[in-house]
């Protein structure tokens, strides 16, 4: 019975997918996360989650914390162990402190990444490390698609990727570049992981479909500007956070049913 519940919960599949990528990254890629780093993210995030549950007397939402820790492991790089702890604390801390109408405003791991990028020069993200290996793309699409279909956020990922690819195609057309350039740019494994696991967080994205599509398109436009106009390599994370600030307005203009993970009341 318990197992059936776990399998039915889309977060289980998401965590399985993130874990698969983490293993691939650790084993297969150079400059991936170290095991102590990933373990620190996970332990700190779970500890923060437990502390919160104890203080406000609610059940422990361990899947959410684990998923945030895995996202951090996949995307954030730093050699300073104190910053591993800080990253996980910022992620879970933001989830419970920056909220509106019972919903957290920012994707926890994106918030931690941006907060650290802005406050220290000791962290970086490695968007190119995944390469454009086709099988990885397929794997990400399969896993991600599965997760998103089950939580009704495929619209978000599809809108983001379609808008972003459209912008890449437009840029190539404007510059007179061959098609191989936008195709290479869209095939980034890092971008796909970002779009499948980060911007699609159902708890921090707009409630209505119209709102979500607008949200995703705005992130794509802003991310494109960050990357190509301002040459900011971590542009996708900044774009996500900036657009997330508008989620309350989007929800007010285009209201929709609030999402809740199966068996939880929030978080």
């Amino acid at each position: 019975m318990w197992i059936r519940g776990v399998v039915r919960d889309p977060r289980t599949i998401q965590i399985a997918a993130q874990t698969t990528f983490l293993v691939l990254e650790t084993v297969w890629l150079d400059f991936g996360p170290s095991l102590p780093q990933a373990a620190t993210f996970i332990v700190t995030a779970l500890a923060m989650e437990c502390a919160h549950a104890r203080i406000v007397r609610v059940s422990i939402n361990w899947k959410s914390a684990l998923s945030a820790a895995l996202s951090l492991s996949l995307l954030l790089r730093t050699a300073a162990p104190l910053l591993w702890i800080a990253a996980a604390m910022l992620a879970i801390g933001s989830k419970y402190s920056i909220r509106y109408t019972g919903k957290h405003l920012f994707n926890p791991s994106a918030f931690a990444i941006v907060a650290l990028l802005l406050s220290t020069d000791q962290v970086w993200v490695a968007p190119g490390q995944w390469g454009t290996t086709i099988w990885l793309t397929a794997l990400a699409t399969t896993f991600g698609g599965l997760v998103l279909t089950r939580v009704a956020r495929l619209d978000l990922a599809a809108t983001f990727l379609a808008t972003y690819f459209g912008l890449l195609l437009f840029r190539a057309w404007y510059l007179g570049d061959p098609l191989t350039i936008p195709l290479h740019q869209i095939q980034s494994g890092g971008l796909l992981i970002f779009s499948m696991f980060m911007i699609t967080d159902p708890r921090s994205t707009p409630d209505s479909r119209t709102g979500r599509m607008l949200f995703a398109a705005a992130i794509a436009v802003l991310a494109h500007a960050f990357l190509f106009r301002w040459q900011v390599r971590e542009g996708v994370f900044y774009a996500l956070l900036l657009v997330s600030c508008c989620t309350p307005i989007i929800d007010r203009v285009w209201p929709g049913p609030r999402f809740a993970w199966p068996g939880t009341s929030g978080g």
Partner: peptide
């Protein structure tokens, strides 16, 4: 000044 340089649109491999 700070550390290693890598490519962001191609993987860097040791």
């Amino acid at each position: 000044k700070k550390g290693r340089v890598e490519t962001v649109n191609y993987p860097t491999v040791k």
